[in-house]
Simulated scan of single mutants.
Amino acid sequence: MKNLALFDLDHTLLPIDSDYEWGQFLVRIGAVDALEYKRRNDDFFAQYQAGVLDPVEYLEFALGTLARYPRTELDAMHARYMEEVIVPAIRPQARALVQRHLDAGDLVAIITATNHYITAPIARAFGVEHHIAAMPALDAAGRLTGKLAGTPTSGPGKVTHMHAWLEGLGRQFASFERSWFYSDSHNDIPLLSVVSDPVATNPNAALAQHAHANGWPLLHLFND
């Protein structure tokens, strides 16, 4: 594989935020206290949009919610979430973009700040084997503890985790002739600045401005 293609997930390949929508789903099915959970989820989402989110605080809020449930019950809820929320949100143009890189023989990965439990099935739905995400800590029996294992996969953390993932495959970033990263967010400027082909995809205002200033291409997968 001569080339590398990396994709952010939320608002890049999906027109929604999978983490926020998971919280909304839990509220809708009555799995959490509606008023309190929605208040905290909305607050964290506003912080993310403003670029001031503490990733560890948010991840441990989200992972703490996951840890409340037996794994069988949690998996059943997640299967329903995929069917009702995620699969209907996957657009053909996003699938086609990923498939183009897969068909070209590129090494493809989704790299997201959202936790691994929520996003692993979404990566599989896109046909992507490699998936880099915030990892939940597990106890000796393999149950979620509600804590984060390691460091967040957000901002400059995406660069660190990308290098660690490649090293685990016996590869070096410098060995690729070309490298793409598709993202919607200014929070991903650290990784966008490292690859040979940064693509501001459905960019927010801050990323669009940065992309224009640096001559990066803009890609609009979604019109809504």
Rank of each mutant, 00 (worst) to 15 (best):
L4H: 03
L4I: 04
A5F: 01
F7G: 01
L13E: 05
D19Y: 01
Y20M: 12
Q24F: 10
L26F: 04
I29A: 15
I29Y: 15
L35K: 12
K38G: 08
N41P: 06
N41D: 12
D42W: 01
D42S: 11
D43A: 12
F44C: 03
Y48H: 03
Q49S: 12
G51C: 08
V52P: 02
L66S: 02
D75F: 12
D75K: 13
M77P: 03
H78D: 06
A79R: 13
A79S: 13
E83W: 14
E84A: 12
V85M: 08
I86K: 02
V87W: 15
P88Y: 13
A89M: 09
A89W: 03
A89G: 09
L97I: 05
L97A: 04
A104S: 15
L107I: 02
I110M: 07
I111K: 03
I111Q: 00
T112K: 00
A113S: 14
T114W: 01
I122K: 00
A123R: 00
R124A: 15
G127E: 05
H130T: 03
H131T: 03
A133I: 06
A133Q: 02
A133C: 10
A137L: 11
D139S: 12
A140G: 12
A140T: 09
A141C: 11
T145E: 00
K147C: 02
A149V: 11
G150W: 08
T153A: 08
T153R: 00
G155S: 09
P156Y: 05
G157W: 02
L166Y: 06
E167A: 12
G168L: 11
G170C: 08
F173V: 09
A174T: 14
A174N: 14
F176L: 10
F176D: 05
W180T: 01
F181L: 14
D184W: 06
I189A: 07
L192P: 01
V194I: 13
V195K: 01
V195R: 01
S196E: 15
D197R: 14
V199F: 02
V199K: 00
N202I: 05
N204L: 09
A206G: 11
A206R: 11
A206Y: 05
A213N: 11
N214H: 15
N214G: 14
G215M: 14
L218Y: 12
H220E: 14
H220V: 08
F222T: 10
